[in-house]
């Protein structure tokens, strides 16, 4: 895949490039500012982008803003936002436009190269990758009907919210696809969610529910 990276810290930018190129991806542009990112995206038309939340000049949430700006011009531009800390607000804002292909992960996750590349691939393919920490916060917030879920169903719900498809969930929990399918059905019934959605739409429905 052709990737644009927006990261101002040289160490981290080098590391990311190394991880990506050593697994066969091409880093077409490395930028250090939000404006630079928007320009690079327009120029290179990448398959996927990786953006740090804090970028110069303000070192605030420049990255999130730049990502949202770039997606206004090209709504399905896949963006994976990386952050040193988890902030539910950013996850909400990134998902809010309803467009496909968005991710929000802690930088720590890059260390697990395989999972990180999976998440990047999922985002590039129009899917979702939300950090488990974000999902944990969301689950902690919304008590209510969630208490009726079994521990396993909560686990499945958490993985759905992170953006995993049934097959991946089955793999991670070491159960069969059929079992996951059944759990998903139960969860949707218990939470009174419309069944039948899949992929990105399913994630949005689950997140909307958790948002309350």
């Amino acid at each position: 895949m052709r990737v644009v990276i927006a990261e101002d810290n040289v160490l981290l930018a080098e590391g990311l490039s190394l991880v990506l190129t050593s697994s066969g991806h091409e880093v077409v542009s490395r930028v250090t500012t939000g404006d630079g990112f928007v320009r690079a995206v327009a120029e290179h038309r990448p398959d996927v982008t990786v953006v740090d939340v804090r970028l110069p000049p303000s070192f605030r949430d420049e990255g999130v803003r730049a990502a949202l700006r770039a997606r206004r011009d090209r709504p399905d531009l896949p963006v994976l936002v990386l952050s040193q800390y988890v902030e539910g607000t950013y996850a909400r804002e990134l998902v809010a436009d309803g467009a496909r292909g968005v991710g929000y992960l802690l930088k720590d996750r890059v260390a697990r190269i395989g999972e990180f590349l999976d998440a990047l691939g999922r985002v590039a393919a129009g899917g979702t990758a939300l950090d488990p920490e974000v999902v944990k916060q969301l689950l902690a917030r919304r008590a209510g009907p969630l208490v009726t879920l079994t521990p396993r169903e909560r686990e499945v719900l958490g993985l759905m919210a992170q953006g995993y498809a049934n097959g991946e969930i089955a793999e991670r929990l070491v159960v069969t696809d059929r079992a996951v399918h059944k759990h998903v059905g139960n969860i949707f019934a218990k939470l009174d969610l419309p069944p039948g959605d899949s992929g990105h739409r399913r994630v949005l429905a689950v997140l909307a529910y958790l948002e309350g």
């Binding site: 605030r60 949430d61 040193q84 800390y85 539910g88 607000t89 916060q137 917030r141 008590a143």
Partner: peptide, 29 residues
């Protein structure tokens, strides 16, 4: 991350007081 968060909440430097409070309010149980 926990040490840094206690020193100065990152959301406060990112979004200022209104943004940080909005975040806390929406995360409250």
């Amino acid at each position: 991350r926990e040490v840094l968060r206690q020193m100065y909440p990152p959301i406060l430097s990112d979004r200022g007081l209104p943004g940080a409070l909005a975040s806390v309010a929406s995360d409250c149980a």
